[in-house]
């Protein structure tokens, strides 16, 4: 379960003064559900997800992830989260196996459990062919699989995906989308940010429209269509963002 309450993040900038990257965002995401955070570049999606993954600290509000408060128990939150984004790169000089082992050990897995989990994940993602190859020698698709294995090694109940398909080719993006769907099937709580409308339509149970750091609208796809009076998600997004933008 993820629950954000009035979550906010403000940065200080010498030239522009205070920037409210995320402003009083509240939402809930239950186990077995995919929550899609949809917004344009710079809307505040990454900052919001980084706060939930405790990589950044909020300047206002609070959130609980898997029952732990992100401010008071960040390490417990991270132990229960798998975080994947295009910014989470791999160590090029480690092999695929070493990379996943490293994160398993950082999560404190006993060696026998780690070995078993590693074998299971490598088999299910068809990674055995390149398990001993260095990450800098892998193709983009192989690298994405290693990243997925890295997020899964400690079997977290919560998965956070920050624009995971950004810059990927169709086939690799498809692997990721399929993986996100499997996470829901396994009963995990999934939050997923993107600016690709089609991915949201295909994957998300609940959609939150974020713009200018604020959550402008939230609901299932049929609910959002009804509220906006538009059919295509792109039109839904523009109408709802424009309407709510007039009354911030």
């Amino acid at each position: 379960m993820i629950e954000a309450r009035q979550l906010a993040k403000a940065f200080r900038d010498r030239k522009r003064g205070e920037i409210r990257a995320v402003d009083a965002v509240s939402f809930r995401c239950a186990p077995g559900q995919i929550y899609g955070l949809l917004g344009v570049n710079g809307a505040g999606k990454t900052t919001c997800l980084r706060m939930l993954a405790t990589i950044l600290q909020p300047t206002g509000g609070s959130a609980t992830v898997a029952g732990h408060d992100i401010a008071s128990a960040p390490e417990k939150v991270r132990a229960n989260v798998g975080f994947l984004s295009t910014a989470t790169a791999l160590y090029g000089r480690l092999t695929a196996k070493e990379m996943v082992q490293y994160f398993g050990r950082l999560h404190g897995l006993p060696e026998d459990v780690l070995a078993r989990r590693l074998d299971e994940i490598f088999a299910s993602l068809d990674m055995n062919e390149f398990r001993d190859r260095r990450c800098d020698k892998l193709s983009t698709g192989m690298k994405q699989k290693v990243s997925i294995a890295r997020t899964l090694i400690h079997d977290p109940p919560v998965m956070i995906f920050d624009e995971p398909t950004l810059g990927l080719d169709v086939l690799t993006a498809r692997t990721i989308v399929e993986f996100i769907r499997q996470c829901r099937e396994r009963g995990k709580t999934v939050i997923f940010s993107t600016h690709v409308m089609s991915e949201v339509e295909r994957l998300c149970d609940v959609i939150g429209l974020i713009h200018g750091g604020r959550l402008r609208a939230e609901g299932t796809l049929p609910q959002l269509r009804e509220r906006s009076g538009a059919q295509h998600l792109e039109d839904v997004f523009i109408k709802l963002v424009e309407n709510t933008g007039q009354q911030p």
Partner: peptide, 14 residues
């Protein structure tokens, strides 16, 4: 520079 810092910060280690 290589973008691995965010990956590392995802781990539960203090």
């Amino acid at each position: 520079e290589r973008g691995t810092i965010e990956t590392l910060l995802c781990s539960p280690v203090a």
